[in-house]
């Protein structure tokens, strides 16, 4: 059997979910027998070089770059997995969602207690910077997502069980302790 090709990305996330992927301990050796990584921070491949079987994404969409990367993943991966609370519901970055973006930026760059060095009172506006969205979006509100793995971070065993079940076609082992929202 040829190896499945996996791509991963962290959008508006903290990389904690990727840390949890590494938390599978010595099973990482088995993982390498099962899969080949393509675009991913794990092997530092920056752009898709081939069609992938599984895309695993942590973090929600908070800016235009996140949306672009997410759409690339949808295009290049047969199956997309939302990994973790931020991907599923926006997570902690989405705590700004009830507040208008203008108010957030003014608090961050003009009015907040730590903006002393910003003497010119500039809200970053360089063309090179991705445009911030009106709110942080869960991934499934932008593209179709096939599977969801909750947790902050999702437990390593949950990720392992899910990936193995997906690749082998077996029923997923889902004990109570593994599905947690924190």
């Amino acid at each position: 059997m040829s190896k499945a090709i996996v791509a991963t990305a962290s959008l508006a996330g903290c990389f904690g979910c990727h840390m949890s992927i590494l938390d599978i301990d010595d099973r990482i050796l088995k993982l390498i027998e099962l899969v080949e990584f393509n675009k991913s921070p794990i092997d530092d491949i920056k752009t898709f070089t081939k069609q992938c079987d599984v895309g695993i994404i942590e973090g929600g969409c908070c800016n235009s770059e996140n949306v672009e990367v997410l759409k690339q993943f949808r295009k290049n991966c047969k199956i997309l997995i939302s990994l973790g609370e931020c991907a599923i519901m926006g997570g902690l970055p989405a705590m700004r969602n009830g507040i208008p973006v203008k108010e957030c930026l003014e608090e961050a760059y003009l009015g907040g207690p730590t903006v002393g060095l910003n003497s010119e009172k500039i809200i970053p506006n360089d063309d090179e910077l991705p445009m911030i969205l009106d709110k942080v979006y869960p991934l499934h509100e932008i593209v179709k997502i096939d599977y969801y793995l909750p947790g902050c971070p999702p437990r390593a065993d949950l990720i392992w069980n899910a990936v193995v079940a997906l690749l082998t076609g077996d029923t997923m082992n889902l004990p109570y302790e593994l599905v947690k929202f924190d």
């Binding site: 009830g98 509100e141 909750p150």
Partner: peptide
Amino acid sequence: QMMVPRFPYAFER
């Protein structure tokens, strides 16, 4: 085993 809600988030302030 709610993996994701079937409804869109409201995000009220």
